[in-house]
Design a protein around this nucleic acid. Structure first.
Length: 250
DNA sequence: TATAATAATCGT
DNA sequence: ACGATTATTATA
């Protein structure tokens, strides 16, 4: 719908790659377009995420150090339909399989927001987007998965969001993990710091929102992710900015 | 206390 | 919604 602005400070080479060449290479540096001093991919606190109740470490330090996360996952899928066309993978949930089960949430589960979505204390994994059914594989499974996903999606799209509460929650989380507005806004919302600040302080009621809804949906989604995944999103740079589609950069 | 980092405001 | 500007807060 909207959200199609691509603004890069650093001239990144974005190539939607014809994939008969060698597998895509991502250098960690590419994931950190703005030499963000805040991001220290290596300062992992031996794997454990902030346990409920403990003072949260900075978001930069609590990432459980996924050893070059994207690449392996990605190249799997990549290889999967590396048929000669290009490699675009629907964004989402790429890391779910990589890390040990995370603590879900230091906070109380969302309650008032919605009655339909998300069981409070399970991860309710949306399955990673099933690769396009490839001939010879199990069609039914693929179709089923796809359908589930579609349901999920339409649910998400239909969902009404209590923007006021959402804003509070987000503010809270940003504080807890010392996530700067600028980072969150840019990386997960594709918005500017000022915009986010405004949204958080004076959220308009859902009913009065038009295109602005998308932004709140993103906040909501982010909130539903398990912690490690949220952090990935933070480090990932621009992932969601292109229509929910990953484009490999190399 | 100076400076840097981050957040809030406001005109467009 | 952006982004420049100003205000606030953290830090050396």
């Amino acid at each position: 719908m909207d959200e199609t602005r691509v603004r890069d400070r650093a001239p990144l080479t974005v190539i939607v790659a014809p994939s008969n060449a060698s597998p895509p290479r991502l250098s960690p540096a590419d994931l950190l377009p703005d030499g963000d001093a805040a991001f220290h991919p290596l300062s992992a606190v031996n794997g454990r995420l902030t346990p409920p109740g403990l003072e949260p470490a900075s978001y930069a330090t609590l990432t459980p150090l996924l050893p070059l996360p994207p690449i392996s996952t990605v190249s799997d899928k990549f290889a999967y339909h590396a048929g000669g066309t290009f490699t675009v993978i629907q964004q989402q949930q790429s890391y779910a399989s990589l890390s040990p089960a995370p603590y879900n949430e230091p906070l109380s589960p969302q309650s008032a927001y919605s009655r339909r979505s998300a069981s409070p204390n399970s991860f309710e994994r949306r399955s990673p987007t099933p690769p396009l059914p490839s001939p010879g594989l199990d069609l039914n499974a693929a179709l089923l998965a796809r359908e589930e996903q579609a349901q999920q999606q339409s649910q998400n799209d239909t969902e009404e969001i209590n923007t006021k509460e959402l804003a509070q929650r987000i503010s809270g989380e940003l504080k807890r993990y010392s996530i700067p507005q600028a980072i969150f806004a840019q990386r997960v919302l594709c918005r500017s710091q000022g915009t986010l600040s405004d949204l958080l302080r004076n959220p308009k009621p859902w009913s009065k929102l038009k295109s602005g809804r998308e932004t709140f949906r993103r906040m909501w989604k982010w909130l539903q992710e398990p912690e490690f995944q949220r952090m990935s999103a933070l480090r990932l740079a621009g992932t969601l900015c292109m229509n929910g589609i990953y484009v490999f950069i190399y």
